[in-house]
Structure formats: C-alpha cells, structure tokens
C-alpha cells in the first residue's frame, strides 16, 4: 500500500457526527479559546468583505473631487459611523487575536495563553471604547 493511500480513516462519519463548518454556529459547551477561534473566522470574513467594499468605494476617487466629496457627506451619516465602530471592533478582535495566535503558535507563550487572551481582550475593549467615542463625536462634522 502506498504511503499516501486513501483509506477508511478519511471516510466521513455518518450524518451529524462531524460538526463541520455549520458546527461553528453551535456554541453549546464552547470555551474561551473556541469563541476566539470562531470570532477570528467570522471577523476575518467580515473584514475581507469590507476590504472589497472599500476598494469599490475608492473607485469614486477616480471620478473626481465632486463625487468623492459628495460621498464623504453621506459617510458622515450616523449609521455609517456606527458601522465604523463595528468595523473597528472586527479589526481589533482579528488583529489582537492574530498577535495572540502568532505568539502561541510559534510556541512562545503557551502556558500563559489564557492570560494573554484575557489581556488582549481588555486592551481591545479599551481601544474600542476610545475609537467609538472618537468616531461618534464626528457626527455632523465637516
């Protein structure tokens, strides 16, 4: 048998016994690190979606000053500023968790990984609050 033969070991178990991607939505019994895992994936997808929205919006720059500046006024609408706070939350979760993962996954901070998670969580909440105040104080500016 070849070294890489496909064997029963990789056969999918019967229905319902492998959690699969939809199993991410099943939060029963999930612990802190499991939440970090699922949040990392959800925020990653969200931020990627935003990245493409952002790139599309930036095409208005090519259309010249008047269309860009008109767009800006629109984006100063409170709804968009609240969405900016959501974006900042996503970036903070994904970025801070990314630092944690890199430290842990290179085997640098393993025994204290939970403390690291809580510390980064605290930093994230503080930066988010500062950012939210900053963004929401822009309501009506310009």
């Amino acid at each position: 048998m070849s070294e890489r033969a496909v064997t029963p070991a990789r056969q999918a178990p019967p229905r319902g016994r492998r959690r699969g991607v939809l199993g991410w939505l099943d939060v029963r019994g999930r612990r802190l690190g499991g939440w970090a895992f699922i949040l990392n994936r959800v925020t990653g997808l969200g931020v990627l979606f935003y990245l493409y929205l952002h790139l599309i919006v930036l095409s208005q720059l090519a259309a010249g000053p008047s269309s860009w500046n008109a767009l800006l006024n629109w984006f100063l609408n409170p709804i968009f500023l609240v969405l900016d706070v959501v974006l900042l939350a996503g970036l903070l979760i994904h970025g801070l968790n990314g630092i944690r993962l890199t430290l842990v996954e290179f085997g640098l901070v393993v025994s204290r990984q939970k403390a690291l998670l809580l510390a980064f969580g605290t930093v994230g909440v503080i930066v988010l609050l500062i950012g939210a105040l900053r963004f929401l104080s822009d309501v009506g500016a310009k």
Binding site: R31, G33, F37, E105, Q113
Partner: peptide
C-alpha cells in the same frame, strides 16, 4: 492544522 482554540486542553 491546529488553530490554538485550546478546547482539547480545557476538556
């Protein structure tokens, strides 16, 4: 392949 959720260690 591990994503460091540490669920295994907890459980």
């Amino acid at each position: 392949r591990c994503h460091a959720a540490f669920e295994c260690t907890e459980a």
